[in-house]
Amino acid sequence: MQQEILRYTAFAAEPGGGNPAGLVLDAAALSDDEMLAIAREVGYPETAFVVGTTATGPRVRYFSPGAEVPFCGHATVALAVALAERDGLGRRVFTTAAGEVALDATTGPDGAVQVAMTSVEPATRDIDPARLARLFDLLGLEAADIAPGFPVLESFAGNWHPVLVLHDRELFHQFRFAPGPLADLQREAGWEGTVTVLHRTGEREYEARNLFPVGRITEDPATGSAAASTGAYLREVGAVEPGDRVTIRQGRHVGRPSLLLVDVPTSGGITVTGSATPIS
Rank of each mutant, 00 (worst) to 15 (best):
T118E: 05
V77P: 05
A105D: 03
F94H: 08
V115K: 02
P65L: 05
G52L: 09
R125S: 06
V69Q: 03
V81R: 00
G108F: 06
D126G: 09
Y62G: 11
S64G: 01
V101Q: 03
T107M: 06
V50R: 00
D104P: 07
G88S: 01
E121L: 15
D87H: 09
V51E: 02
F49V: 03
A75L: 12
I127E: 08
V51F: 02
A98L: 05
A105H: 04
G90Y: 11
A82K: 03
T106M: 08
T106A: 13
G108M: 07
V93E: 01
T56L: 14
R61K: 07
F94R: 06
T96Y: 07
R59E: 10
T118A: 07
L132M: 14
L132F: 12
A123T: 15
E100H: 09
V101R: 02
F63S: 09
P122A: 10
G111H: 10
R131N: 15
Y62K: 13
T56N: 14
V93D: 00
V81L: 06
G66T: 14
T53C: 14
A67V: 14
V120S: 02
A98N: 07
P70W: 12
T76W: 05
D87S: 09
E85K: 03
I127R: 08
A105P: 03
T118D: 06
C72V: 10
R86T: 15
M117W: 04
F63A: 13
P70A: 14
G99H: 05
R86A: 14
A75V: 11
A75K: 08
V113I: 13
V120T: 06
L103M: 11
E68I: 14
L89K: 02
G111D: 05
A82R: 06
S119W: 01
T124E: 01
S119F: 02
R125W: 03
T76F: 09
P70G: 10
C72P: 08
T56E: 15
G57Y: 00
R92C: 04
F94V: 07
L103S: 04
A55Y: 09
G57L: 00
V120L: 04
T96N: 06
A112S: 13
E100P: 02
H74K: 13
P122Y: 08
A112E: 11
A102I: 12
T53A: 14
A130M: 14
G99F: 06
E68V: 13
T118K: 05
P109Y: 02
R131C: 15
V120E: 02
V77I: 13
P65F: 07
R125P: 02
G52A: 13
A78H: 03
A84W: 01
D110C: 05
D128N: 13
D128L: 10
A112N: 10
V93H: 00
A80E: 04
T96C: 09
P58H: 05
A97I: 02
E68N: 15
E100W: 01
A130G: 15
P65I: 04
A78L: 08
G90A: 12
A112T: 12
G52E: 08
V51S: 05
V101M: 04
D110H: 04
D126S: 08
R59C: 11
V51R: 00
T96P: 08
V93Q: 00
A67M: 15
V51A: 01
V69F: 01
D110W: 03
T118V: 07
F94L: 11
Q114Y: 06
A55P: 09
R59S: 09
G90D: 13
V101L: 04
F71V: 04
P58G: 10
G90E: 12
G88I: 01
